[in-house]
Design a protein around this nucleic acid. Structure first.
Lengths: 207, 207
DNA sequence: ACCTGAACACCGTTCAAGT
DNA sequence: ACCTGAACACCGTTCAAGT
């Protein structure tokens, strides 16, 4: 089969198929991707520059879908706006937990990523955060979101209570939920702690 | 050269050489690792079970060295103790920023890792955090540390101000420092925000 | 422009052979 | 017990050939 009149592939179809493989198997190779698309591996290179590019296409796709639900205007409290933005940011990743470990190479230039940060910057300014602290605050949120997203890719039982003799830690492990619920609770707590702290920066001068 | 009377390799020597490759090149293969050790690739498999095992050996080595400096008893304030623990935890990673992207597969079972969490759990209990919240708090700190560590592997200029039209974000990018200083400042801020919030959990009942 | 098939260098890993 | 050399299946990527 040579060139078809209608192209068989597109960046979107490639990213979609790769994402399905990751959700299913936790990883993908150019060979398994080609097979899922009913195509030879070399065909993929007519649409993306390589495997790294496929990963960037997935990052963009996942964040585009998340930014679509970024309707935040109806909320009054700017703190609540920031909270919703960050929850949706993290939720975008949470839909594809196995993807996160592939996203560790930084790219802030993609337009889909920029839109998140622009929205966040606006709300932080509205909150009264001084200009020279805004990027620090964004970076902190970014670290928490990325760290929490990585946590989603962790196995069901992260904490093995048989591996410690420590009484406090053992009791804490027994008392805590497991899996997704543990990850969700922790992210919510982190968000609340950070947002609570923001109120204090707001009223104090820059460091 | 068959079996030498003194073994040429050990897990430590392997991890050390791999870490040097990562600090230099940002990555390693079993072939480059063998070459650095003046050995054939197949020799390595007599000491570790494979590449993943080399990565675990590096994780252990990096955290062992960090935990060695965990002398925290001299401090009075338990909040200060927690702060020092977390700063050293993050510093352990910060010494080898290029390693972090390889550490995204979770392992909390390694003894070197457990010791960090045991120390942290003890201090959180001393702070009055209820048992059923301790693991949530630890997970939050963990997310921040891992996210901040990943940030260290980012390129010098994470933020490209030409990629946004947003006024607030542009001004924030211009006002902020670059590279290591940006990452350090953000981590310190995140730590202070979280620790400030802890004081509130302390006095309120569990969720 | 876009899919194919053959070919490339390289990857991690296995294992019988040697001492 | 530990290093070697040969061999394995697989990996991402390139490119001339076909329409």
């Amino acid at each position: 089969m040579p060139r078809p009149s209608q192209p068989l592939l597109s960046v979107e179809r490639i990213a979609e198929a790769a994402l399905a493989l990751i959700d299913g198997d936790g990883d993908f190779t150019m060979a398994t991707l080609a097979r899922a698309l009913n195509v030879r591996p070399s065909s993929i290179y007519h649409h993306v520059s390589g495997r790294e590019d496929v990963i960037e296409a997935m990052r963009t796709m996942v964040l585009e879908r998340g930014v679509g639900r970024l309707r935040v205007e109806s909320l009054d409290d700017p703190i609540q706006k920031v909270k919703v933005i960050l929850q949706r940011y993290r939720d975008s990743f949470a839909r594809h937990p196995r993807l996160i470990p592939l996203l560790t190479s930084y790219t802030v230039s993609a337009p889909a990523v920029m839109r998140w940060y622009e929205e966040l910057a606006d709300q932080l300014a509205a909150l009264g955060i001084p200009t020279d602290r805004i990027l620090d605050v964004i970076t902190v949120f970014d670290s928490l979101v990325l760290g929490a997203a990585l946590d989603l890719a962790a196995p069901e039982e992260v904490w093995d209570r048989t591996k410690t003799q420590n009484e406090v830690l053992t009791a804490a492990i027994v008392a805590a939920p497991v899996g997704r619920e543990r990850a969700d609770r922790a992210f919510d707590l982190g968000l609340d702690l950070l947002l609570g702290g923001l109120a204090r920066i707001e009223s104090s001068p820059s460091a």
